[in-house]
Nucleic acid binder design. Structure first.
Lengths: 228, 228
DNA sequence: ACAGAAACGAGAGCAGTGCTCTTGACAGTG
DNA sequence: CACTGTCAAGAGCACTGCTCTCGTTTCTGT
């Protein structure tokens, strides 16, 4: 539909991409909340008001960057080496997520740090945001099919409202037992809690550098959800 | 030593506290990075430059707020009801931390969200920051003494660099086995990952509201470190 | 008790920000 | 060719953190 019809449209798409690239560069150096439209326009040799032809506001630019970041992280996680062994695959996903986060700390902070004040994330971000959890769920679903997922005996089956909330995940991975699905959410939060602590400097003084701790946690979390 | 010697010193301490209170109010409404010295000064009926007599920079004010937030969270966690049963106490600490975070989301974001751009946390913050982990370690140490801590059989003992890093924790809780100490760091990161996801809106669409999920996770994490 | 030092609030000013509005130039279509 | 919509440019608004100077108040050493 919009595959570069007129010269105008092509130029517009190109410049939009250039703006995002410049914004990402500035993001990497000064951080998210210090991102300045004027600085971006200066970098591109244009005037600040011209940017508003491409992004209606600073928030809209941020939204585009957030979606791009989620997509980049999702792509990095999905590109993790998959050798077939569920535990190894699980650990590879963890490592890929960590590698991407360490390589793009500001973009990581953009999506998993504190929300930007006055900024409301639009619905458009939730689909790219769910790529990593979906990847983990798919991995568990396949492991279950191949008999490599053994529900831990001490994993309590959810009841009440928790069981109801788990239904959303059951629809995505129907063969994975609800008790494991709850644990999946637990380890999902653990993964990003661990990464945030490492990147935001909370581990300094204890588990920093975090390579070995991360490796141990990955493996223990794989066992925690029942992978073997 | 500095218990209000001269009138000047008393006035200074009072005004310093007033500034922080006004800053906290503004923090709660507009967020951390939108915190404006001019707005604070306006609120207090003084001129912006006068604030610089009390805080050398915006960063210094932020540091004071960060330390206060860590201390408030630490105090809230330490004030959790302690009935003697280790599992119940553990869950009570979790609940107290969550309650404080939900009651003070902006202050939570200030200390556990993305670091503020261009802001370097000084060494002064690490001691208040470690109150919650120290509390958990103390709980485990006491549970161990009363035989309520059973090292999980599948918890791997750390080796290599990880074992060395664990030494810091061994010094704090000498009776707790290293394997449990590593798991303590894991659950510590899980707790704040879970809280960040809840507060920053990452759970919307799955485990939100998170009350039951949080309760289940607290209990499962207590079991994960070996409490019984 | 009193002079000097230190601390203080007020105000002006600098360089920067996001964003709006108007103006004039250009490209695409009839 | 003329019309229409898109574009970059620039001025301007209200705001920010921060610095400097000013006259005043408060503390302190003698």
């Amino acid at each position: 539909m919009n595959a570069g019809r007129t010269a105008r449209e092509r130029a517009r798409a190109e410049l939009t991409e250039e703006i995002k690239t410049a914004a990402r560069q500035q993001l990497a150096t000064v951080g998210a909340e210090a991102l300045s439209l004027r600085a971006i326009s200066r970098e591109l040799g244009m005037v600040s008001s011209a940017l508003y032809r491409y992004f209606a506001s600073r928030d809209e630019l941020l939204t585009a960057l957030i979606i791009d970041a989620y997509d980049a992280l999702g792509a990095a996680a999905e590109a993790a080496p998959s050798g077939g062994d569920p535990v190894d695959d699980w650990i590879a996903v963890y490592a890929a997520v960590r590698d991407w986060a360490r390589a793009n700390p500001q973009e990581y902070a953009l999506i998993y740090g504190s929300p930007i004040s006055g900024y409301q994330a639009p619905q458009t971000t939730v689909q790219p945001a769910s790529r990593v959890p979906l990847l983990l769920l798919g991995l568990l679903q396949r492991a279950q099919a191949s008999g490599r997922l053994v529900t831990p005996p001490d994993a309590p089956s959810p009841s009440g409202a928790l069981a109801q909330q788990t239904e959303v995940l059951v629809a995505l991975a129907p063969d994975v037992p609800p008790a494991v699905l709850v644990r999946t959410v637990i380890v999902w939060t653990q993964l990003f809690g661990m990464l945030s602590f490492e990147l935001f400097g909370q581990l300094v003084g204890s588990m920093d550098p975090a390579d070995e701790f991360f490796a141990s946690a990955s493996r223990q979390m794989a066992a925690f959800v029942g992978l073997s």
